[in-house]
Amino acid sequence: MKSVLSLQVALFVVIVAALAFLPVFASPYGLTLMIGMLGYVTLATAWALFSGPTRYVSLATVAFFGIGAYTVAVFSESMAYPLLLLVSAAIGLLVASVVGFATLRLAGVYFVIFTFGLAELIRQLVTWYEVNMTGTLGRYIFLPVTPEGIYWQLLGLAAITFAISWGVGRSRIGLALKVIGDDEVVAAHCGINVARVKLALFAVSSTIITLVGAIQAPRWTYVEPVIAFNPTVSFLTLIMALLGGANRLTGPLLGAVPLFLLFEWLSANFPNHYSIILGLLFIAIVFILPRGVLAFAEENWKRWRRHEVKTVPGVAE
């Protein structure tokens, strides 16, 4: 058992190291693709970190993503770059704590609606502040960050996110989360501090999402609330995590990579039908693969081997 574990860790390190050398060989467009892909892999993994085990479907991804991007835009001229990322993370953490503390007692569809509203609320607050206090809406980001730099930072963040996700899955807190996901009342009776566990995970997950926004922001040069708080980011993250299976470590990865490539292929070859195909795909995923491809493959594998299959309810149900 132990050797399997060390093998897995070694494999992980080798993959990350290999990916780190990719910019040397990749074309500029390949690098752009990898940046987009890594961004969504990190977003989906961070999303699943909280929403997977607890089954709290969050649409607040873009709220934190936008906070990260906007913080970089606001302070890009007055701070050193590493400090910029730290401040973004701190603001993300603060907002996540306040919001989480106030709302994590909501459940089910109420939570979904609330998180969707949160992104809009933050966008409107930023707009209001910019209009009435600073008198400008668009902000410029002129940072000397190269695409390679962005790629390596995202890779680092993705690796850290995986490590956290792996660690949480094996810890007491991970077990506590699963119990909460199965039945919150039982969890409370088992002596789990439900509110604290949920809040901690929500905060960690949101901070990572904030950092993804902060790292990617220099690519845009120009940031407006409409650009930074684009709700599509939330939906894409959600559907990627669901496709792969939000309850597994590599689930979001296996959802994000093929979907991202598919979207890219669709928008290059079917620019006029993209939105229609995307909508159909969303419906298909939720209906056919509610527990994700990994679980789907596993169930069918077992069924094929004539084993009893016990289905676990998915996040989308």
Partner: peptide, 15 residues
């Protein structure tokens, strides 16, 4: 290409 009114998309499409 359709950038779908998303700035990340317009960047990628031009690239």
């Amino acid at each position: 290409y359709d950038d779908r009114s998303s700035s990340e998309e317009v960047v990628r499409a031009v690239e």
